[in-house]
Amino acid sequence: MEDLLNTEILNGQTLGDFLTLDFLAGILGSVLSAILILIVGYMIAGWVRRRIVGLSDRYEHLDNTLFNFLGNIAKYIIVGFAVLFVLNTFGVQTTSVVAIIGAAGLAIGLALQGTLSNVAAGVMLIFFRPIKQGDFVEVNGQMGTVKDISLNFTELASLSNVQIIIPNSEVWGNTITNYSIYNTRRAEWTFGVGYGVDLYQAERIIRDTITSDERAHVEPEPFVQVNNLGGSSVDFLVRVWCDSDVFFQFQADMKRKVKEALDDGGINIPFPTRTIIQE
């Protein structure tokens, strides 16, 4: 009877082989090995991610967003390899699994071309940093202050404090005008005076009014010259350097102050006139 039972077990005709100690020990060993591989893989992945993210905390000029992204990518890659090792432990042919994952990745990549291009552009923006938070920029016809740069889009706040969302592919692929990258800017005005006025006096008034403002830089030397003889005015071209953060207010203030100073100095400021002759 015992010989008959053993014969049936060997021939796979009963369920007795699933209850043998050797088989259970093998299953248990595989499960424990898989758990151990996953735990070790997860611990290594977490350690690698922390090391990568820690680089941005150690060096202030490095962007946190980029290193968080790179850290997560490294973590997922390590965990993915750990899962492949687990599958291999259970006898699964990992070559076919990798092929399936590759095919699925290709299909997903083709379906998400626009999104992936935004992510790629976001990585380039974060890595090369042509713009950063707080910069006042003009991108793709939109002007505003940079509020955030994510992996998918760049957020601007317009002069009217309206949120503007621009896909990163349109930011990286277009001309970027960054008004905040340099500490100084050159303000420029054109002031017209009448043909009958004393040009030396007009020039002195314009120069003294602008250079007396504490926002005007002495170096480089301010430029005040007659630039054009117009149809009804002699035009002075004025160029003065100032700090970038006061540029707009400085430029606006000087228009009013120069006009008031010319009026006080008796300098005629011509304006368009029209003479109507009735017959």
Rank of each mutant, 00 (worst) to 15 (best):
A45H: 05
E214S: 15
V139W: 00
T14Y: 05
T20L: 06
D243A: 14
V238S: 04
L24E: 02
V258E: 12
L5H: 15
E219P: 01
R215G: 14
D3N: 14
V97W: 00
L199N: 10
N228P: 00
G265P: 05
N140A: 11
I276T: 15
W189G: 05
A34H: 08
V258A: 06
V92R: 06
T95V: 06
G91L: 02
S233W: 01
Y195P: 03
G114R: 14
F153W: 02
L262T: 08
Q201R: 15
I37F: 08
R49P: 04
N140F: 07
I277A: 08
F18A: 10
I27C: 06
V146E: 01
A187T: 06
I35M: 09
V97Q: 02
L151H: 05
F236T: 13
I176P: 02
T154I: 02
I166W: 03
P167M: 09
Q133S: 09
A157F: 07
N64G: 00
I267H: 09
A120Q: 09
V92K: 03
A202H: 11
P130A: 03
L10M: 13
I176W: 01
V137R: 05
M1S: 13
D148G: 02
E138M: 08
T177Y: 12
Q13L: 12
A187G: 12
L87Y: 06
Y195D: 05
L5K: 15
G144R: 11
A157W: 04
F23L: 01
V162A: 11
P130Y: 08
G194D: 13
I149K: 07
E2V: 10
N228F: 13
G26K: 03
I27M: 09
P270E: 02
E8W: 15
V224T: 14
L237W: 12
T175W: 08
G41V: 06
R239M: 10
S232E: 11
I181L: 04
D263G: 08
I101D: 01
I276P: 09
V123P: 03
